[in-house]
Computed example of a mutant assay.
Amino acid sequence: MDVRDIHTPVLLDRCIELLAPALSHEGAVLVDATEGMGGHSEALLERFGGIHLIGLDRDTAALRIAGQRLSRFGDRVTLVHAVYDGIVDAVAQAGRTRVDGILFDLGVSSLHLDDASRGFSYAHDAPLDMRMDQTDGLTAADILATYAEGDLRRIFERYGEEKLAARYARAIVAARADGAITRSARLVEILIAATPAAVLRERAGHPAKRVFQALRIEVNTELAVWERALPAAMGLLPVGGRIVVMSYQSLEDRYTKRVFAAASSSTAPVGLPVELAEHAPRFRLLVKGAELASADERVANPRATPVRLRAAERLRAAA
């Protein structure tokens, strides 16, 4: 099956529109910091014939698919196996020090969700892996086997915003005494059994949803990576450079909002009669708040439902 039949890029037209002013000149450089299966990159390479793409992904399987999809663009494409907090090194590896546009499409990709064997989904029984880069790091099963009850509770609360975090952590520790929890179906069974009947009746969504999200974030250190990656990426942009970020869970979006707000605000002390250049905002926001997918797009592509898009443009050079 053609990858285009299984992968629909989220907010594609809007991403192109927002990045266009930064990419419309010959020799512009675009970083797709979350390459995935190459859907956004392909459309941007087609739309802007003079750009060079640097595509990053931690998943070697995704890079293979993207490489095949983008092969017709030849030497206009440089793909790098890297986590996106390594964006500065990846850009340097491609022989650049500045880039004109940056795109982040955060979270779990269609490739991960559609491959049941990766263990990302609570809807399919599979080994509890959840690593985006299967060449390195702890699996979700490792975490369930080795983390203390308090640590499990912490990640469920922080990364899943799960109200039953303590109850679920206690149930997992009790269950693993009878044998390692290595498959998603077993974890789902434990979580359902630990959920009060009234909550099962009233809760919107599956009781395992937030725990699976929390485990995925912990396995891939997603929030720590994002907290390093966003400031580093913004530092690569020249005046007129643009960055677009799509988040799918509130923790990432809140951090993006906070960083963009600080970068687009004056740092001048209150009461100064004039604003000195060094205190002027470094960026301007390109969208008001966080943009959502349209109702039509959410129907056509349900994975666009939780997206929150934010974008900014550099106004003045870094000090």
Rank of each mutant, 00 (worst) to 15 (best):
S121Y: 13
P127C: 01
T60Y: 14
T97K: 10
V108Q: 05
L144F: 10
L111Y: 14
D85K: 13
V99M: 09
A148F: 10
D105E: 07
I54Q: 03
I102T: 07
D129F: 09
Q68F: 04
H124E: 00
S121T: 08
G67P: 00
L56R: 06
I143D: 00
H81G: 10
A62Y: 02
I65W: 08
M130T: 01
D136Y: 15
S110F: 00
S110Y: 07
A82M: 09
R64Q: 15
Y84L: 12
L63W: 07
L106P: 04
A123F: 05
R58V: 04
G107P: 03
I87D: 01
A92T: 13
D142H: 11
I102G: 00
S117R: 11
R98S: 08
G67I: 01
A90F: 08
A92H: 13
L111A: 00
L63Q: 09
L103W: 12
L56A: 10
Q93N: 12
D89R: 13
S71L: 06
G101Q: 02
A92P: 05
L53K: 07
Y84F: 15
R72H: 14
D129N: 12
A141N: 10
S71Q: 14
R69H: 09
L138D: 05
I87G: 02
D129P: 09
V83Q: 12
D115Y: 07
L106H: 01
A126N: 04
L63R: 08
L70T: 02
S121N: 09
D89E: 15
R118W: 03
T97L: 14
D114R: 08
D129R: 11
L56P: 03
A116P: 00
G150S: 14
R131T: 03
A66E: 10
R98F: 09
R96E: 11
Q134H: 10
A126P: 10
F104Y: 11
L138G: 06
L138A: 15
Y147S: 07
G137W: 04
D142C: 01
I143C: 03
D89V: 11
V77L: 11
D85F: 12
A116V: 03
A145I: 05
R64D: 15
G50M: 11
R76F: 08
L106K: 08
G95K: 14
A148W: 02
Y147E: 11
L113M: 13
R76L: 09
H124Y: 14
M132K: 02
R76A: 06
H81E: 14
R69C: 05
T60A: 15
A61Q: 15
D142N: 08
A94P: 04
G150L: 13
M130F: 12
Y84Q: 06
L128E: 05
Y122I: 01
S109Y: 06
Y122A: 02
F104L: 15
E149I: 06
G74Q: 14
A126K: 09
R96P: 00
S109V: 02
R96A: 04
D59Y: 09
D89H: 12
A126T: 00
D100L: 12
G67Y: 04
